[in-house]
Every structure is written in structure tokens, then in C-alpha cells.
């Protein structure tokens, strides 16, 4: 039984970290509104949003659950509540603010210590449209990441680095595409299938309205 197009589906939790003024939620709003899917209005509020992307080569649809966090320093103690069980973290800084870059580095340190193993981390500089006021050079970020990776013992995936502009939309979708490609899609699909069988045919994590039956069947029949 060959699977129909886009029959592979995986869902991931992505947490947004970064200082208040870096525009991390603007990046997400841009991502959610700008892509091919129609805007999915969340039911409660815009701090939690979802968006799907398709990765054509592997015929996979990835649904991101995007969790915004409060960037104010005083609320940093709340962050662990948000990044537990996260599959990916988007650490955002403002390329015109060195302070915000330092703060993003702090988040990466904390994630490496406390976040789930294997979390995909992206270090993203926002406001690339303001490069005249740039304080953080991309080469500098590359250097930081290279050094960080060499120091980090015991695995952990490479940090993805990118720049984008929530204002113009430049580079935003690319960030999510790259994260999507770095995520353990196979693992997630297999795990979901296993859970579905265990739960008597229902899929864990709720039922996706877009693809209810096909998914459950696939989960049940593939192994």
C-alpha cells in the first residue's frame, strides 16, 4: 500500500526565547501569516500559534507548535515551564543590539544544561533590514557557534544560525525550513504510530482535523 502524497506528518514543539525588544513574536507572526497556509487563528491568544510547513524531498508535513515566552529579565524563571518537552528552540537576538546577543547566548547555555536532549537550537538575528546599525556581525556569530560546538561535550546537535527580518519577511520561512529539516521526523512518526496503537487506534497529541483517518491507518499498518 503506497502512501498518498504528504502522508507523513509530524508535530513539534518550538519555544521562542530572547529579550523583549528583539521581535521574536514578530518573526513568528510573520511566519504564520506569510506562508502558504491560511492564517490559523488560535483560539485563546497569539502567544501560542501553530503553522505547518512541507518538506518536499521527504514528502513530510511538519506542524510547529510555537510557544512564545516573556522576554523580560524578571520572568526568566518561567522559561523552564515552556522549554520542557520542546523539540526546538529559536533564540532570537537583534543584530543592532549586542546586549541582546549576549542574552541569546545565555539562553543557549541554559538550554544545553536543562532542555531536553537533542533539542534543535537556532540562533537567529532579527532586524536584518537595519544592517546600517548593526552591532553583531554574522562572522562573529559563526565564530561563537564554532567555538561553542567544540567545547560542548557529549553530543548535542549543531546550532543553526541565520539572520532574518520580521519586518520585510526576508529569511523568516527559511529559518523554519532549516529547523524542520533538522528535526527528528522519522523518530516522531514512529513514536506517534506506536502511541496510536497503544491507545487503541487514537493518535497521541490529539486529532488533527486535516488528516484524521489516513494518519491513524498509516500508524497502525506500517509496523
Amino acid at each position: 500500500m503506497s502512501a498518498p502524497a504528504t502522508s507523513r506528518f509530524a508535530q513539534f514543539k518550538l519555544v521562542l526565547l530572547g529579550e523583549s525588544a528583539v521581535g521574536k513574536s514578530s518573526i513568528v507572526h510573520r511566519f504564520v501569516k506569510n506562508t502558504f497556509d491560511e492564517l490559523r487563528e488560535s483560539t485563546i491568544g497569539a502567544a501560542f500559534l501553530t503553522q505547518t510547513i512541507t518538506i518536499p524531498e521527504t514528502d513530510t508535513t511538519i506542524k510547529f507548535e510555537i510557544w512564545d515566552t516573556a522576554g523580560q529579565e524578571r520572568y526568566k524563571s518561567l522559561a523552564p515551564m515552556y522549554y520542557r518537552n520542546a523539540n526546538a528552540a529559536l533564540c532570537v537576538y537583534d543584530i543592532t543590539s549586542r546586549v541582546s546577543f549576549n542574552r541569546a547566548q545565555d539562553w543557549i547555555k541554559e538550554l544545553r544544561k536543562q532542555a531536553p536532549e537533542g533539542i534543535v537550537i537556532a540562533l537567529v538575528g532579527n532586524k536584518s533590514d537595519l544592517s546600517d546599525n548593526r552591532e553583531v556581525e554574522l562572522s562573529e556569530v559563526e565564530e561563537y557557534v564554532e567555538q561553542y560546538n567544540s567545547e560542548a561535550t557529549g553530543g548535542g546537535s549543531t546550532i543553526i544560525i541565520a539572520e532574518c527580518s520580521a519586518k520585510t519577511g526576508d529569511g523568516v520561512l527559511e529559518v523554519f525550513n532549516r529547523i524542520g529539516r533538522a528535526l527528528p521526523v522519522e523518530e516522531a512518526i514512529n513514536a506517534a504510530g506506536g502511541r496510536a496503537r497503544q491507545a487503541g487506534g487514537r493518535r497521541a497529541g490529539g486529532v488533527d482535523l486535516n488528516r484524521p483517518r489516513a494518519q491513524a491507518q498509516q500508524g497502525g499498518s506500517c509496523c
Partner: peptide, 9 residues
């Protein structure tokens, strides 16, 4: 803005 920065407080 309807983001976590405004919501959490």
C-alpha cells in the same frame, strides 16, 4: 502586542 511579553505580567 498580543505576545507573551504582554500576556505573562
Amino acid at each position: 502586542e498580543t505576545n507573551a511579553d504582554a500576556f505573562v505580567p
